[in-house]
Design a protein around this nucleic acid. Sequence first.
DNA 1: GGTCTATTGAACTCTCTGGTTCGTTCAGAA
DNA 2: TTCTGAACGAACCAGAGAGTTCAATAGACC
Lengths: 225, 225
Amino acid sequence: MNSAPQRDPAEPGATPQPVRTRAPERTRLEILDAATAEFSEKGLAGGRVDDIAARTRTTKRMIYYYFGGKQQLYAAVLERAYGGMRDAEAALDLDRLAPIEALRRLVEITFDHHAAHPEFVRLVSVENIHEGRNVMASPVIRERNAAVISALRALIQRGEREGAFRPGLDALDLHMLISSFCFYRVSNRHTLRAIFGRDGRLPEVAAAHRRMIAEAVLRYVRPGD
Amino acid sequence: MNSAPQRDPAEPGATPQPVRTRAPERTRLEILDAATAEFSEKGLAGGRVDDIAARTRTTKRMIYYYFGGKQQLYAAVLERAYGGMRDAEAALDLDRLAPIEALRRLVEITFDHHAAHPEFVRLVSVENIHEGRNVMASPVIRERNAAVISALRALIQRGEREGAFRPGLDALDLHMLISSFCFYRVSNRHTLRAIFGRDGRLPEVAAAHRRMIAEAVLRYVRPGD
DNA sequence: GGTCTATTGAACTCTCTGGTTCGTTCAGAA
DNA sequence: TTCTGAACGAACCAGAGAGTTCAATAGACC
């Protein structure tokens, strides 16, 4: 229960727009942030619209005003989360590096993004519980993500041509090999910690994992045998 | 879905008499099966006690009679599911095989069990959404699973001694490398299919994945570099 | 047969929660 | 200033869904 902003009475003209009582875009974003936290913590069914509203400075009414309903809000949250992942991947330019270094870089970026965004990982887990219906329904998510595979496919071809990679590698399978570990150590961190007693968030553990998955992937693509 | 165990004795042949017999153990198991299906499909918050009851031949009253409540029923479901995994791993005797073959076998068993038991994978995903609270609270689950690591640690030592594996391998990390891929391709199969259009349940895809993770793990432990 | 108790079923209660109603306020246009 | 519509808040509603009540019945044991 945030104390209501008692409409700060007319700040002196020094600051451009200090406090706005009307701020539709900000309200929208605030709801999206709150919903991202709520749904990633409790899932779609477990998340409460009232609790999302309580996390913001506005009310439940606004959620329905801007998003229409719980389901659509969840869809909006998911779409934005996938967008963040896509941006991270698009940021690195694989063509500039030698194949092996480019692949190592891709692994590291993937690792880092998952580690830095557990809420994204959890949302994807939640979405899979719901059989991927919302991802299926969002062309935006589907198209943008397919792009990663194209980039990886090009890299594989280049590496193969240059003799850095062995022939016969499949882009999608390799992507899965990379993502699986990066995803799993975040998505399952609670059961892993409960059962094995090792906290994956400890810096030294994370560093070892980062080295391991890069090493495993590079060994996997290396020519020989 | 309706796996009616046609075991009803005293069937006069003509009238399918809905005789209400006393079968406490069977009722308990039936509830457990129904709850496993419900919770793995919809999660803990999304699962409905009424729906679980509807999946059985008995009523909601029995769920409370035998398990006490939704939460305890979920805990019982989770404990049984983890038990199945543990049994599969205990079944294979790693000591009889050469290190490389033993490790390959471990990878394959892990792969096969995850592929054959998506409901287990989904339950673990659900449990992680709930921050592993129930796994944490169940000493049974924790102890049995820790055993896998001991077995793997012994195998690593043996392989290292015999020169089949390179030195410096960590048992828990290696276990995670193996599990992550086996788990991920099942846990995330819906979003993967939605985004990349490849169904991991197709036999040829599954076979390729099985070969890939074994190859990747074996290359990772191999001496050299 | 008679008694006793573990099991069982139908219907009920009551809180939680997604969604709505209705009225209000702000900011800019005219 | 007045008007208009977007942005907002408090209270309300209806149905869903977890958990209960109470009595009935099956089978075991005498």
